[in-house]
């Protein structure tokens, strides 16, 4: 099955936070945002732009520590969160090396990005990627996205944050100079733990959109199949 990833080229980001607000509208999370809880947020720091958001690790610590299976790593990339299952223990908050899950004291639940899994199912990009005015945020099939990230990094001498941090993630953030300077947390690096087929033969991939559509169609087909099966069961 194809996997998906996000690429953030901070050299095209101006810190406008259109991504943050579009995310809030998508998830109807105005109340949490008012209390300072964002699924994604851009901090305009002195050393660059810090996109604080879930990295969707290949081998997520949050998933490992969740005592109730509220967090799970999907086959296609995103780390998903089931609010109903969550007991608010904050184990994930403590375990995440990127300090991403945020605990909402009012609801006693956590808040974090799902890579807009519900939109992927509808053949749409995540809301942040669709809204980004400069195209700094791009979404697509992991192979193509990683290929693109590597190509840009090589051409413009940029660093890819998220490539080997925490043994690899589905979020690639391109920074000029050290990511740490821009605010990204220094996370232990390791060899990416992912099936070889997902990231191999990267090379110079063609534009991402075609690959997304192909993958999304598959998802959509699968979704339809399941719906049909359920219908038959009924």
């Amino acid at each position: 099955m194809k996997t998906y990833a996000i690429l953030i080229d901070t050299s095209y980001c101006t810190g406008c936070n259109t991504c943050s607000y579009r995310c809030i509208q998508e998830f109807r999370s105005h109340t949490q945002a008012t209390n300072g809880l964002f699924r994604t947020f851009v901090a305009i720091n002195d050393g660059g732009l810090y996109h604080k958001r879930c990295m969707h690790c290949f081998d997520p610590e949050c998933v490992k520590v969740c005592p109730v299976n509220a967090l799970s790593k999907s086959e296609y990339g995103p780390v998903l969160y089931d609010q109903e299952k969550c007991i608010g223990c904050q184990s994930c908050v403590k375990a995440c090396p990127f300090s991403i899950p945020q605990y909402d004291e009012k609801t006693q639940k956590i808040l974090k990005c799902s890579l807009c899994a519900h939109r992927i199912a509808e053949n749409k990009e995540p809301a942040c990627a669709e809204a980004c005015p400069t195209g700094a945020i791009q979404f697509g099939e992991s192979k193509a996205i990683l290929g693109k990230a590597k190509e840009i990094a090589k051409k413009r001498k940029m660093t890819i944050y998220g490539l080997s941090e925490a043994s690899g993630t589905h979020t690639y953030i391109l920074t000029i100079g050290s990511p740490k300077k821009a605010g990204y947390i220094d996370v232990k690096k390791g060899v990416p733990k992912i099936k070889k087929s997902s990231i191999e033969s990267i090379g110079a991939m063609p534009i991402v959109a075609g690959a997304i559509i192909g993958g999304l169609k598959k998802l959509e087909e699968r979704k339809r199949k399941i719906a049909e099966e359920n219908k038959n069961k009924d």
């Binding site: 998508e26 997520p60 490992k64 005592p67 799970s72 086959e75 899994a117 519900h118 699968r222 979704k223």
Partner: peptide, 21 residues
């Protein structure tokens, strides 16, 4: 706690976060 990463998933579209908002 048990290593649950990449455990068998619910069929696509079943997870609450895969459902339209």
């Amino acid at each position: 706690f048990p290593f649950k990463n990449l455990e068998a998933q619910a069929p696509f579209g079943k997870h609450p976060q895969e459902k339209p908002i």
